[in-house]
């Protein structure tokens, strides 16, 4: 179920990127796209009844772990996503300083 939600989030992110004309809104759409992507990646490794891939003293002898590799990938992707978001917001500030607006339509040039 979450897999479908993830794909819908991806699509909504793309929709936002195409329709929104505000710089902040574009970055928000990027974030939604990234959240959808991260959920999708996790859902690839998940199956019903799987255990979190962490060894504890209570782990059974033959543990039925979900795939840990996608989780490692998502950790990397989250951090990269924050990097791009922060850079995008810094650019948004610069844009505001230069044009006095955050709306792409209100700027003189394109």
């Amino acid at each position: 179920m979450l897999q479908f939600a993830a794909i819908i989030l991806l699509m909504l992110g793309l929709y936002g990127l195409l329709t929104q004309r505000n710089v902040i809104k574009i970055i928000i759409s990027l974030n939604i796209l990234e959240i959808g992507l991260n959920l999708f990646i996790i859902s690839v490794g998940y199956f019903e009844g799987g255990l979190a891939p962490i060894f504890t003293s209570e782990t059974p002898a033959n543990p039925n772990f979900v795939d840990p590799l996608p989780q490692a990938l998502v950790l990397t992707a989250i951090v990269i996503g924050v990097g791009t978001t922060a850079l995008g917001l810094a650019l948004a500030r610069k844009i505001y300083q230069k044009y006095g607006t955050l709306n792409l339509d209100e700027m003189g040039e394109n």
Partner: peptide, 8 residues
Amino acid sequence: VVMQAPDV
């Protein structure tokens, strides 16, 4: 959490 990825 539901998808068993607590660290993420």
